[in-house]
Design a protein around this nucleic acid. Sequence first.
DNA 1: CGCGGCTTTGATGTTCATCAAGTAAAGTGG
DNA 2: CCACTTTACTTGATGAACATCAAAGCCGCG
Lengths: 231, 231
Amino acid sequence: MDELSEKCTCAECHMRTLFFAHVSKDELQKVCSLKTEVAYGKGDVIVKEGDKIGGFLYLQKGLLKLSRKTSDGRDQILCISKPFDFVSLLSVFSASEFNYSVTAISDSLTCVLDFNMVKDLVKENGSFALDLIQKLSETSDQIILNSLEIKRKHLHGRVAHVLLFFSDDIYKSAVFELPLSRKEIAEYIGMTTENVIRTLSEFRKDGIIGIEGKRITIIDSDRLHSISEHG
Amino acid sequence: MDELSEKCTCAECHMRTLFFAHVSKDELQKVCSLKTEVAYGKGDVIVKEGDKIGGFLYLQKGLLKLSRKTSDGRDQILCISKPFDFVSLLSVFSASEFNYSVTAISDSLTCVLDFNMVKDLVKENGSFALDLIQKLSETSDQIILNSLEIKRKHLHGRVAHVLLFFSDDIYKSAVFELPLSRKEIAEYIGMTTENVIRTLSEFRKDGIIGIEGKRITIIDSDRLHSISEHG
DNA sequence: CGCGGCTTTGATGTTCATCAAGTAAAGTGG
DNA sequence: CCACTTTACTTGATGAACATCAAAGCCGCG
């Protein structure tokens, strides 16, 4: 118990309420006894596409990107993941290797649990199994829906979409530091770097946003929402 | 037992090996006792976006499309689902309403289980829970990966991709009847109907495929694979 | 300090959506 | 069963959206 709370404050871990709501103290202790916390700096690769799936990965703090390499050597970003949101649940249960790479796009803290422990917990605790299924389902729903939304929009709409994602969903502030390079934004929404930059510049010229390097200020949020929605 | 095998031959149901591998005869009987089989004709709407999630739906025979309406009134098809593949697992566990519509694109037979029964089974049978999680995970992985593949391709590659999907994955034959209209293909791969037709015509002129209405013949499969892969 | 990667802008060409117009096929009501 | 309507399919012409190419400034880092 003491040892547990020394390693990390599992007792106060947000995972407990969200993910382990139906897990007893004893069960939690068992799972947490074999956990490892790892800190990553911005840009660090946490998982590489094709890596053997070892542990069950959970994001405590920070931001990650999930990406894969296309057969012609370019990168595609499938989603940006924040704590609570996606627990790198993708393909953990369906494959023996990761289908995607995971990279920290801001300083991050992960918690790695023993995969077999988690599997045992699923087997033994039906309520936890249901919670896990729900979380997994939500995660994929979100990715699929988001991907369809981006697909249906034109360049301007897509860039607006990304800006609003960071402003509304991640930072909850009109001013924020973009954690992605222009190139990464392009990889995320499926366009070229040049056109991302061009579109951002146009938004600036039209007084919709302010840009100082990576620092973005949303000036006319209504307008940006309208562009995101109707092109 | 007799009654069970009269309703449908649950004992031989393919679901049993794939999905219910770790479910006992008694458990299976309990779940199957409350099942309903429903047949649908081509074009029939099985589930409409926004419908309350009632049962746990499983495809026994046929082909379905999953689609949603965009805010500007167009349709987007997210995936084509065949038996075994996607068990309309999407959003069943994460939402109270369906996020997508489900429509039969060929004559189909579905099996509807009581959702609470399935949930109980998850709670009581840990091995089934793991099987379900794996299936769910595979399904979403497939959709996400497929969506990324389509996204990275140009028109020609996308059309080739769809043709090969039906030829290689679904019908396993060089000759087949397209179950989708040109318009639906367009909705699936994110382009206009006109350009789908134009691209098909070009493939025909180049001697890559044969077209008689909905009947497609893959003549030069290698070439089509190459187009799908490298544009 | 110089090299490589990120950023920016402009010019150019390609890809693709849109518009228009016509044919074929399939359902509908008298 | 046939005229009628609607829906699916097809082709061409045009312009808009977007990628590509080119060139230069900027910044961090060894």
